[in-house]
Design a protein around this nucleic acid. Structure first.
Length: 422
RNA sequence: GGAGAGGUGGCUGAGUGGUCGAAAGCGGCGGUCUCGAAAACCGUUAUACCCUUUGGGUAUCCAGGGUUCGAAUCCCUGCCUCUCCGCCA
């Protein structure tokens, strides 16, 4: 949510941002008009209320002294009707205005490259060396089935297409990865959270999955609750509707969650094996910080996610997303793409975004600073990282010519010291 | 799922339908005192919005409706918390 004042004062800036993010449901002119009408009514109704408050205390005084007040009570009855009518109009306008405001995307940061899609993204750094394996590396879905680490047809039997099932060493590998990541982040000051995986529409609105992504979410039938599409939702919403004290900031949160996504209309590209599925697991990083150090915290958050992959020794690169490739709520986003030896290309494994106060406004999450001033917090998050992309990367980058998988050194303590799968 | 109790400011906690944005206490902040601190005493201590913005106004006692000239107070609905019973990993 943007500050209504900002929209009022800089409508062109907001329009340009919406255009660059390709957000067609953002209607700035309508918002300005609703806002003007709203303020007009507020002015009128508040004047009437002021009148009512004045006369009402006069009535109280007269009643006390026993003076008659019937005539002004009659006047007030009419005034009350008028106030109610205006209040109703105001309520409707507010609802309409809020509905429109919910569709105004965040404004991309000045440093974000302007462009229509991912072709305008800028690779900001690269890490690790891509080595020529010297043999034909099997893609993860082949080596995975061969070594009995996963069973995609079983998953289809259970749930339909777009699901995966890990078993044996595959399932244990995932658990090892989760623990490796949680331990690492915790050692770097992140507080581990285990939060609900099913959340309210309000929480989904808070982090701005709603209203835009409604069709991409799994929704429960009777209760109108949503299955989390990312740990971002429960973790960021922890302090929704709260005024928190400055001395608990910055908050670094980490946790494991499954992620549920309908992926409506995503068929085709990069969908084989675990690459695009309706349920995957993720370790998520969330920071809630004061505005002052927001961007320093953000850059460090990117590095925190990179550290996971560096520990595993797999090449990756970091890209700064262009305006057209960013999400609705984001002010600035980096993607981390990991090298996939099986398909010989980089695959997105983490997306790190900062929102400044965009989510905080939607959640109404604020903090009280040293001067007792109440201000919006800044929020940001990043995958740290997605398992459904990390497992393929390991199965492919650690594949040996004899069809076995070497277990990365950092994971061995989590796998009883084993060094090899297969 | 059933029965009951309750939701008031940063916290605890008063509040007969009419000077109640709300007593009191605690905490916080400022001051007096002190070499300094504690204690004591004095003062201060919410948020959002609107406007003709050193000022004025409106709203907010869980949320949303309603009754009324007037609601923290009365009525309805919802949400949440607690207690007991049932069910249950």
């Amino acid at each position: 949510m943007l500050d209504l004042k900002l929209i009022r004062e800089n409508p062109e800036l907001v329009k340009k941002a919406a255009e660059r993010k390709n957000e067609k449901k953002c209607r700035v002119d309508l918002i300005i008009e609703l806002d003007n009408r709203r303020r007009e009514i507020i002015r009128e109704v508040e004047q009437l209320k002021s009148e009512r408050n004045r006369v009402t205390s006069e009535i109280a005084r007269k009643k006390k002294t026993g003076e008659p007040a019937d005539d002004i009570i009659e006047d007030m009855r009419r005034l009350g009707d008028k106030i109610q009518e205006l209040d109703n109009q105001l309520r409707e306008l507010d609802a309409e205005l809020n509905k429109e405001l919910a569709w105004v995307p965040n404004i991309p940061h000045e440093s974000v490259p302007v462009g229509a899609d991912e072709t305008a993204n800028i690779v900001v750094r690269q890490w690790g060396e891509i080595k020529e394996p010297g043999f034909k590396v099997l893609p993860h879905w082949e080596i995975g089935e061969k070594l009995n680490l996963m069973d995609l047809s079983a998953a289809a039997r259970i749930s339909g297409s777009g699901f995966y099932l890990l078993k044996g060493a595959g399932a244990r590998l995932q658990r090892a990865l989760i623990n490796y990541m949680l331990d690492m982040h915790q050692a770097d000051g992140f507080i581990e959270i285990c939060a609900p995986f099913i959340v309210s529409a309000e929480a989904m609105f808070g982090t701005a999955q709603l209203p835009k992504m409604d069709d991409d979410m799994y929704k429960t039938e009777g209760d109108g609750l949503y299955l989390v599409p990312t740990g971002e939702v429960p973790f960021t919403n922890i302090y929704r509707q709260e005024i928190i004290s400055h001395d608990i900031l910055p908050l670094y949160l980490v946790g494991y969650t499954p992620c549920f996504r309908r992926e409506a209309g995503a068929a085709g590209k990069d969908t084989r094996g675990l690459l695009r599925v309706h349920q995957f697991d993720k370790v998520e990083l969330v920071k809630i910080v004061r505005p002052e150090n927001s961007y320093e915290e953000f850059e460090n958050l990117v590095k925190q996610a990179e550290k996971v992959i560096q520990g595993l020794g797999i090449p990756y690169r970091v890209s700064l997303l262009s305006t057209g490739d960013m999400t609705f709520a984001s002010r600035k986003t980096y993607d981390i793409e990991i090298w996939s030896a099986g398909v010989a290309k980089y695959l997105e494994i983490s997306s790190i975004s900062t929102f400044e106060d965009f989510q905080a406004r939607r959640m109404n999450c604020r903090f009280r600073d040293e001067e007792k001033k109440v201000r919006f917090v800044h929020t940001m998050n990043g995958s740290g990282v997605a398992l459904a992309r990390l497992i393929p990367a390991i199965l492919e980058n650690y594949q040996n010519e004899d069809g076995t998988i070497t277990i990365p050194k950092v994971l061995r303590p989590y796998l009883k010291g084993e060094t090899k799968i297969g």
